[in-house]
Design a binder for these strands. Structure first.
Lengths: 238, 238
DNA sequence: ATTGTTCTGTTCGATACCGAACACAGTCGG
DNA sequence: CCGACTGTGTTCGGTATCGAACAGAACAAT
């Protein structure tokens, strides 16, 4: 998962929100990495030595129980950073961060970023705001997991993935999505089939195509809109 | 909910973990408050101006949907602090913090506490560690809400409440517990009735009595033990 | 004592999802 | 071209929980 470049292109919206001067000082510390599905960035309990800014692609934050059952408790895409809370002094990760959608990211050591935070008030402020947004997302997901149906959560998930994918088509199997949503694959296949019949999505062996976003939004719970609105408020509408 | 004392007794374990010198400087800023069930400490979206350290009693962190359905996404008792993340620079609360079990708390302004953090490395470190623990709790609950049965979550909840209550008997209605767990009251009554028949608890009109902790632990999901172990690791086993 | 309110017990049909299984089709490696 | 594997469609009985309703019991206010 390592591939180096001298002058990586920056598309991550968190980084892009920083002033040029700040970004310029960070650039020498940024390491360009290809992100491949199933790459594990941070394990549960790991000390967080690096922060990852996705330019493209998406990471899943996953909690696994002792019996092996797992469920996604959050995602991090182009508006966020994997390992964000390490910047607020939290040592260890309480979940596993694993690449879900392929793409690339810029990695920087926690210490380098904290050094810049000590200097840049803007960066410090952005980290805090983004952390607040993340907390909100996490709480929303906790409630969503309890209150909303599989179909609603499935639609929400597809919308979030679509936002981060950048393209209408991206790799995704029923099996994987069922794992993330913490449900049986058979149940998910039925929901996915219904969404396909309704013309919201189309899929073929491990690849899904978002056809009708509005349809998905109608089928989704309010959680997508709530989180999206907060994110737009922080980074602007586009 | 306001009742003042000059030299409040400190039982909150977060505060007790601080060195005397640090505590001594904080004391003049600590305001003693009675906590009554349903008192709202922080609303969703509020800026967090104060931090609350419970000596006794328990706060529920609650997320409410637009249709009025709600679910508890976490609790804060004698080992934590309501408004903790404000100390890491997060401005606004993403949920509502409401008193669940009666007791009393010490309140301090965010600014006073941050001033002391700037001085005390130990306090700063403890805040970060406790925040990390809270994140872990939140993630655990998000997963628990998806993966575990009502009975398991009910047992877990009773155990957590028991830990914070300090006594074996505390006020609790089926209605309230169903709200917190995000389920129907009728379903909860059946589970509660079963637990009573099994001799784990006894209850009468709005009051529950913990009879057999071991039984509850057996009926609970692993989430209770996982979170409890992390908490013990941070504060010691008692 | 009477009345109103809160809390609990219980029923009942409806629904969502589980958990396991099997079939089949597309894809890949040799 | 031939397996082997992976991804999807579908079934089926079982269970958990919903959502709504009603009744009775304990308590509080008057």
């Amino acid at each position: 998962m390592a591939q180096h470049r001298d002058e990586p292109e920056i598309e991550n919206r968190f980084l892009l929100a920083l002033p040029d001067s700040c970004l310029k000082r960070l650039k020498p510390h940024l390491e360009y990495l290809e992100m491949r599905p199933r790459d594990v960035l941070i394990r549960n309990g790991d000390t967080m030595e690096h922060v990852y800014f996705f330019n493209r692609g998406l990471a899943s934050l996953v909690k696994t129980m002792r019996d092996g059952r797992m469920v996604e408790i959050g995602v991090v895409g182009v508006t966020g950073a994997v390992g964000l809370f390490s910047l607020l002094g939290v040592e260890r990760s309480a979940w596993e961060s694993v690449v879900q959608a392929p793409g690339n990211a810029l990695r920087i050591s926690r210490s380098a970023l904290q050094a810049e935070m000590a200097r840049s008030h803007v960066l410090q402020d952005l980290v805090r705001r983004r952390a607040g947004l993340f907390l909100s997302e996490l709480a929303q997901t906790a409630a969503c997991n309890r209150l909303h149906s599989l179909e609603q959560r499935c639609c929400r998930w597809l919308l979030m993935a679509h936002d981060s994918a950048g393209t209408d088509s991206f790799p995704l199997t029923h099996e994987f999505l069922a794992l993330m949503l913490g449900v049986q694959r058979s149940g998910l296949s039925i929901v996915a089939g219904a969404l396909q019949r309704d013309g919201c999505i189309r899929y073929t062996r491990g690849r899904v195509n978002i056809v009708d976003r509005a349809g998905l939004e109608a089928g989704s719970c309010e959680c997508y809109g709530t989180v999206r609105a907060e994110c737009d408020h922080l980074f602007g509408k586009d």
